[in-house]
Design a protein around this nucleic acid. Structure first.
Lengths: 337, 337
DNA sequence: GCGAGGGATGAATACGTATACAGTGGATAC
DNA sequence: GTATCCACTGTATACGTATTCATCCCTCGC
């Protein structure tokens, strides 16, 4: 391996100018079919691949999308990432993955301006982060997936978290539960906020009051769900159902219940949010509000591509329904009927 | 936002030549401290970020590493990816992530030659894939993590799967198990092969014969583990312990056992491989052979960087120990003692 | 006072491609 | 025969940076 061949080398080999080789590469119609065939043959033989950097510098397109994400080890995020990878790769686009937890924010801001990517996908927008602001201000096409920011002039595709949460609440209320636990997160973003407020709204509409001691605001990890369950279930009069805002927390709650010998759904119903693959596992069999990951990603990337083509499009905010997926962590029959 | 400012624009602003700006950017010592200060001030004010593409074209360095991976939704792979992201980002390197399942192999081969990256990390090398061959042949620095290829002249960092599997087998043998199930994968790579053969070797050394009907070769997903457990445990004389080559399969086995009402570890011991985060969850509490993910990634990326600096280094193959992590899916006491 | 040397800077160029521009040759129309 | 046009191809340039080379000025030693 010395220096990889350039279009100029191949032009010499094929007896044409570098410009003609370039024209062949870009499918420029103004090339004689015979010449094109000859050049293509030479390219083939030399196993030539254009230098993506030089091409990108000239065209301003890198065919690369920057994806910002947190906690890949979280099941839902892994599924989201997988889907993003699938969609991008089907379009012939590369993906640069940045983890905002690892990268200090200012350095992320720098990356934004390096013109390495044609567009950004943000999956973890939170109010206390300036990332989306920087991204949008940089003028680089940007789409927010999964988590939105109210009032941000930027394409956004999110699940209808409020409605999904509302449906979960109504489901519990209609099943006859009155003592209901809510394990929630800080409202650092749209998602957690709506998943919290929608649920409360449903209970309020059903005339059910949530006892303050049955509401716990916890952190993201599985262990926090576990601890929350221990706390809620060791009360004198524990709740008969617990709703929580992510599957990961729901798994922790199920584990906490199991550790205490609390049977699900006999003694306790549990509902999560995201409907991750794990929710279908026998260990959990978790009733969960489904996020339409496939549709979110497909739609979002499509918006992003259209914005790359035409940066002046008005921003669109698309909300997709989140249906409740019922499994065995809640019963098909009314509570204690 | 019109055109982002270039080093030439800033040179004009600072009253110096573009060359001097460039020298400041690259920390070239041959710049007068006063000039440097002045230029830096201008750069700061303009919020200037160098065009990474132009820089890369000139230097041949993109500060980007290409990572090839499959199935990000698999818990172990997610942890591996997370760790790779952490290490790369700490070094100021970007990561382009390619999923070999989504990308047809030939297109991956093309990406390899586009010179978009300084090096490759392959995490899913299998015998039937030509990816590693293409990567190595392309002359781009490459390191194989987690899965190795025997005899490939390329840096490799892998866990000692054989020894880890052997330890798991000896542990079961010493505990007094004689009817042992093995749920394994096709030997498509080093990893699955060694995790299979090492276990068999331990049992052979202990004088234990595995009944052919207690050996199942299955696919990767959780559901396959579930089905395997159902099959093994519904036999007239089911095994008293099952070892399997990934945690994901072990979770499936635990779920299958749970569905049949088989108690773990009372009626059945289960051992997995990878010691993923999920293994510590209450639902599973899985005894598992630990992969030293952190060390594997840290060591591997270090090798890769050294190879990028010096492409003529001899290839190193590093094997790191995989200790057995004992949890409650196996008892601390001998079997049925 | 003068030459040598070194520090600091600017001018020029190269990286590999895409593309505007300027030909060139042949065919067509008169 | 000439003018016009078209299809095709080559020449030259630009993208934004890093770096080589040449230049300039100042200092120092004699």
């Amino acid at each position: 391996m010395t220096r990889p061949p350039t279009s100029r080398d191949l032009a010499r080999l094929a007896g044409v100018s570098q410009a003609t080789v370039s024209r062949v590469l870009t499918n420029n119609p103004k090339v004689n079919p015979e010449t094109r065939a000859r050049v293509l043959r030479v390219l083939e033989e030399a196993n030539y691949i254009p230098n993506a950097l030089a091409r990108a510098m000239k065209t301003g397109r890198t065919d690369t999308i920057g994806v910002f994400m947190t906690r890949v080890t979280s099941p839902f995020h892994a599924e989201l990432l997988d889907e993003i990878g699938r969609v991008l790769s089907a379009l012939g686009l590369h993906m640069i993955l940045w983890n905002i937890e690892h990268d200090p924010e200012e350095s992320v801001g720098k990356m934004i301006q390096q013109r390495l990517v044609d567009g950004f996908v943000l999956t973890s927008a939170t109010y206390d982060s300036s990332l989306h602001t920087i991204a949008v201000a940089s003028g680089t096409p940007t789409v927010l997936l999964h988590r939105g920011i109210d009032g941000l002039d930027c394409d956004q595709v999110v699940g209808d978290n409020w409605q999904g949460a509302y449906d979960a609440g109504r489901y519990l209320a209609e099943a006859g539960h009155t003592d209901i636990g809510l394990v929630t997160l800080e409202h650092t973003g749209n998602t957690s906020r709506d998943r919290d407020l929608g649920f409360r709204a449903a209970l309020a509409d059903a005339g059910i009051r949530i006892k303050p001691r049955n509401v716990l605001t916890v952190g993201v990890p599985h262990a926090d769900g576990h601890a929350a369950a221990q706390k809620l279930l060791s009360a004198k009069k524990p709740p008969t159902a617990i709703y929580t805002v992510t599957d990961l927390l729901a798994f922790g709650i199920l584990d906490g219940a199991r550790a205490l010998g609390v049977r699900v759904p006999g003694d306790l119903w549990v509902i999560g949010f995201d409907n991750t693959d794990l929710a279908a596992w026998e260990s959990f069999d978790l009733t969960s509000v489904e996020q339409p990951v496939h549709a979110i990603v497909e739609t979002g990337i499509d918006l992003l591509r259209r914005r790359i083509e035409n940066p002046d499009r008005p921003a669109e905010i698309i909300t997709l329904p989140c249906p409740l997926k019922i499994r065995k962590s809640t019963a098909n029959t009314p509570w204690r009927s």
